[in-house]
Amino acid sequence: MKPTLLIPLVAFLLLVVILAGGFQLKDPHILPTVLINQPFPEFELASLHGEETLTKQDLIGEIALVNVWATWCPNCLVEHPELMRISQKENIPIYGINYNDDPVKARKWLRRYKDPFKKVIVDDKGRLGIDLGVYGAPETFLIDDEGVIQFKHIGIVDRELWTNTLMPLIDQLKRVKMKKADLSSKIDIQS
């Protein structure tokens, strides 16, 4: 046997290792635990619209979705109608992170398909994406009113995800918040 004939086999085994590795890392049912319940990473990036600089403070205040998207990502277009619906009908603000993209193209894209975002952060170098552990676009984060990441979803947001996962989570967050408010008002009365 000539040793060179082993090259295809070795190359293939290497590929399998990568695939198996990727497979382990990215079981879509298991959330990357490192990010859940962690505060949203700090950043200072340009806004897609206008001159202002956006920071983490802009995202804090109410329960919101943060959506990572790009014009080169066909799936972002697939989930776009659902994002529009959520922002209009469900009254949940959505912040966009325009990821590894050209801002000019991104503005054009939003003009063409309508803009579901309250604000759009320009992450053209992908720095914030790295901090967030973004795998690709689209990805969507659910943050609470204090800017803590509650949930992360890889892939498109559709009605099923909204009904089965996002809406129950948001309701639960709201309940917890109300209880807290309730509790603190009671404490106020007692004191």
């Binding site: 990568i18 590795g21 890392l25 590894n100 552990g133 690709g136």
Partner: peptide, 11 residues
């Protein structure tokens, strides 16, 4: 990339 860089993700 993910496998090489300890879970760092790119596309």
């Amino acid at each position: 990339y993910e496998a090489m860089n300890d879970g760092l993700k790119i596309s």
